Simulated scan of single mutants.
Amino acid sequence: MTPLRDALFRPVRAGNAFEETVERLVQAIRLGAVGPGERLPAERDLAGRLGVSRVTLREAIRSLQDAGYVESRRGRYGGTFVTSPLPVPTAGPRVDAVELADALTLRAAVETGAAECAAGRALDPAERRNLLARLAECGEAALEDYRRRDSRLHLAIAEATGSASLTAAVADARTRVNALLERIPLLQPNLAHSNQQHAAIVGHVLAGDAEAARRAMAEHLDGTAVLLRGFLS
C-alpha cells in the first residue's frame, strides 16, 4: 500500500466502528487514495488494517454501495470498485471545514452537558414518560422520518434539564447539524447503532447516572461527527 493508504486505513476505535469505517473509506475515495474505477483492497486485508470484523466492513461497503460510492463486480477480476463518476453531493453551499468543526464542537458541548444535567435532576413521572415515548418513537421511525424523530428525542433530553436556555441552545445546535446531515446519506447500520446508543443514554438519564449519561452522549455524537467529516470535509 502507499503511505496515504496506510495513513487512511489505520485501525478504528471500537465505540463507533461502523461509522469510522465508513469515514475512512469515504476519505480514501474523496482524497484519491482509491480513485474512480479503482478497486478497494481485498476484504480480509482491509478488515485487518482497519481492525474491524469482516461483518462491519461489509456493512460499511454495502452502505457506500447504496449511496453510489462503490460497486461490486463478480468474476476473476471482481471486487469492490470506486464508481466513476462519483456521486454529486446534495445541492447547497460548500461546507467550510471551520464551519463544520464549529457546529460539531457546539453540539458536543451543549448536548453532553444536557445529558449530564438531565441525569442529575429528579425527574417527575411526566418527564420520564416523555423520554421513554420519544425513545420508542425514534426506534420505530421509518427511514424518511428518522431525523425528525431523532431530533425530538435529543430535544426531550434537553427539556429534561429543566433549563429553557439550555434547551434553546440544543435546538440551535441541532438545527445547524441537521442542515449538514441533510447532505449525507442515511445509513441503516448507523441508525440501528444510534438507536442502541439512544437507549443507553436515556437509561443512564433515568437511572440518575450523570457521568455515564455524559459519556454515552459523547460517544453517540462522535459517531455522527465522523460521518459528517467523512462525507463533507
Rank of each mutant, 00 (worst) to 15 (best):
A212K: 09
E23T: 03
V82D: 04
V52N: 03
R62H: 14
S53K: 07
E159K: 07
A212C: 08
G162M: 01
L31C: 05
A213E: 10
E159Q: 09
D6P: 05
T90E: 14
G230D: 04
R73Y: 11
P189R: 00
S151D: 13
V95F: 05
P93C: 03
V52Q: 02
Q27L: 14
P189Q: 00
L64N: 00
L228V: 02
G139Q: 09
R94F: 01
I61N: 00
L40C: 14
V22G: 07
T80Y: 15
A225W: 01
G78A: 07
A160M: 07
R54P: 08
A14Q: 10
R152T: 08
A126Q: 11
I157W: 04
V226E: 02
D6I: 04
D96Q: 10
R128H: 08
A103T: 01
T90N: 00
T83S: 11
H204F: 11
R62P: 07
L232G: 01
D124R: 12
L227K: 03
I201P: 03
I201E: 05
P41E: 08
D172S: 11
D150E: 10
L132F: 02
E43R: 15
G92W: 06
A122I: 05
E19L: 07
L25A: 06
V70T: 11
L191M: 14
V22W: 06
E219P: 00
R54E: 13
A212R: 09
A133W: 00
T2Q: 03
E59K: 12
V52Y: 05
R149V: 11
E116S: 10
F9Q: 02
L57I: 00
L25K: 04
D45H: 12
A142H: 15
L166Q: 14
Q27N: 09
G15V: 10
E116A: 12
L100S: 04
A33W: 04
E127W: 07
E20A: 12
L191Q: 10
Q197S: 13
A60P: 08
S63A: 15
Q188E: 15
V70A: 08
L131W: 13
G68H: 09
V98A: 15
R30F: 06
S151A: 15
T175W: 12
T224W: 04
A164K: 11
S72M: 14
L31K: 04
D124M: 07
A156T: 08
L4E: 02
H220K: 11
H204Q: 11
T80E: 12
E219C: 12
E20Q: 14
S233C: 09
H154K: 14
S72H: 15
A97C: 00
P85L: 12
T56K: 05
R174N: 06
F18Q: 01
E116Q: 13
E140K: 07
R39G: 11
D102N: 06
Q196A: 14
L131S: 14
R10E: 05
E38G: 06
S63G: 15
G208M: 02
N16Y: 08
G32Y: 02
R62N: 14
P36C: 13
A14V: 08
A60F: 13
